[in-house]
Design a protein around this nucleic acid. Structure first.
Lengths: 350, 350
DNA sequence: AGCAACAATTTGAACGATCAAATCATCGCG
DNA sequence: CGCGATGATTTGATCGTTCAAATTGTTGCT
């Protein structure tokens, strides 16, 4: 049968040139004369030739593949943020000729095992990590291996020895609080998470400093609970009924949905309307008309991919480039820490 | 530096055998004597050897890769069902030694272009499709190429000439309706989608036949609107206030959330409690305490992967196996049409 | 003893690309 | 006119694996 897939040699014969010239047209077009280049291009499209990634990878040790752990199969509301992030990364990566492999893991150690497999067997070019936390074994492991990677999320507490992209949670709650102040509210409560998580403390800080700057004492206007809808409801009851809060900023949409339910219930009984602002712009927020702080996920993903592909392209020419070295070059590192501003999505609730 | 990755030859030397024997230990262990097999295994673990997928793929034309389009970057509630499905497929595939590549596409033609690239460049072994619809170009294209694939979702209307796995929506709404009948309700309304979509008609049918069987005329108890929360609210107002429905079954959680808001509002004003049942078990449903019909996504994903990997393994031995042929063998096809039963998740709303 | 049948293992070639070095052509210039 | 420099293209080797055929070793049977 003549319907075998065309190889680089097929194309070469068709265009009356050698293998290598075809290869050059693809990888270093400037090295080949304009007219032959066109002839080769014609042959390529005519035959529908696509280079074999496997063969290329075998020789170059570059897979043009990027891997990412999918958010755990949970019923959590928060899951959708990461799912959307995976989507955005995939989309951005495609623009650079990279494809994305996803995988699941049940623990950080599982995840490291997966990295090891992907690295050795599939020769992945880079990784994108999410949900980093204090003393993360994954980042130290990856650093030791010298693999390029970016995390979506700052490493709280320690000075980062790796690249990251994150969203400025403090700026988000600041914007939310300011909006409520502008609307004339003073006793703005915060429905927060337990003290001690980097993200939660950051989001709380935005509310707290803004309120202080406006001359309001935040002390009595704070609750701290685990991230469930019911807790949001309970906190709202306490803040509004007992502590007389006249508006609420929440650390998450999950909490905010609970708070919103309480507030709407109160309204339908003829009580006062207390605005509620959430955080994350989850699908549920849209569904329930919840005003919320939206993370610029597309931009975050694009930045991650940008950092990685730029680095990979550079290390093609300049073979001294070792990601570990590069990360150690501290003056260079600041450019690889990107903090993006979120924005408010205004809906009925606030 | 001696820290190059070990190759099959490294292992062979270490174990005092030839390349091919190592290869056999990995791919056809029965051909190798027990003691040498152990010796080779020892060398493998000792050196931490992992076969190069690229090299293997170059020779065998098998990538052990499976591809899937991610649900569009939308704010839709429904998105999360597909996201969870992607996750479940990835998880199942890992169990069979397959990794998953995800990609995005803006249209079916884009998706076909992606398939073409993935097939030619990456030599993907199989595809999983979601969101199939009437006259789907993608399935006919894939069939013509002779690539193994499964769709999650039946091809409505036509007799399927390809493998599919789906969830029995009719059974889901039947269960929901029966539950409400058992609780003593009679005038059970259905908040549905516009007539004409396969999935929507199927879900409506479950409610309709069950209601008829119970001796209730469904005619005045139906609304049909696009899938938004607001439409759910509006429909609920109409069905409950004007047409005196005393319970509601909805075609989706999105609609149900709107209906639920209406009902809860009514309750807090002292009105009667009207139970609401949704469909899909989205994260929002859990958050809002919505009773809903849950699709067995893990099982569906597992079945998809099962069908594909079984076929791929078979076609390794038996090289006459051409997916197109196999699909054409009609008596065989029925086994490759799998309909799974959903189940009710009971929460506060019903 | 001789030889077929079979099991276990090894050897050469191939998959499809890129790298590194070699070849060929063209041109400028003393 | 010859020779080095430069640019365009080609050739041989190689990446790490599996396939197909060849080799070696063992056993059973006449």
């Amino acid at each position: 049968m003549g319907n075998d897939r065309p190889t680089i040699t097929t194309v070469a014969e068709r265009a009356n040139v050698s293998r290598q010239t075809v290869s050059n047209v693809l990888n270093a077009p400037h090295r080949v004369q304009a007219d032959t280049r066109e002839r080769v291009q014609a042959a390529i499209t005519e035959l529908g030739y696509r280079p074999s990634r496997a063969a290329r990878q075998l020789r170059t040790h570059r897979s043009n593949l990027l891997a990412m752990r999918m958010s755990p199969f949970s019923e959590e509301l928060a899951g959708s943020v990461l799912d959307r992030f995976v989507h955005a990364v995939t989309e951005s990566a495609q623009g650079y000729g990279f494809r994305t492999i996803v995988f699941t893991a049940n623990s950080d150690d599982d995840e490291i095992a997966a990295y090891s497999d992907l690295l050795n067997s599939y020769e992945l070019d880079a990784f994108v990590l999410t949900g980093t936390h204090h003393r993360d074994r994954r980042t130290t492991w990856l650093r030791k291996q010298g693999v390029p990677f970016v995390t979506f999320g700052r490493p709280w507490g320690v000075r980062a020895r790796h690249w990251w992209v994150d969203v400025d949670g403090k700026a988000g709650t600041t914007a939310a609080t300011e909006r409520l102040l502008d609307a004339g509210h003073r006793r703005i409560g915060f429905v927060g998470w337990p003290i001690g998580s980097g993200v939660g403390d950051d989001r709380r800080a935005g509310w707290e400093t803004t309120l202080r700057a406006a001359g309001v004492d935040p002390a009595s206007l704070l609750t701290s609970t685990e991230n469930t809808v019911d807790n949001g409801h309970v906190s709202a009851v306490e803040l509004v009924r007992e502590r007389k809060a006249d508006a609420l900023v929440c650390a998450s949409d999950t909490l905010a949905l609970g708070a919103l339910a309480m507030v709407r219930d109160q309204v339908s009984r003829g009580g006062p309307a207390v605005p509620v602002i959430g955080f994350d712009d989850s699908p549920s927020a849209a569904a329930m008309g919840l005003t919320t702080v939206a993370q610029p996920l597309r931009a975050a993903a694009a930045t991650c991919v940008d950092l990685l592909t730029n680095f990979l392209d550079r290390s093609d020419d300049n073979d001294t480039a070792d990601p570990a070295d590069t990360v150690d070059a501290v003056d260079n590192l600041a450019e690889h820490h990107v903090l993006l501003a979120p924005h408010l999505v205004v809906r009925q609730s606030g």
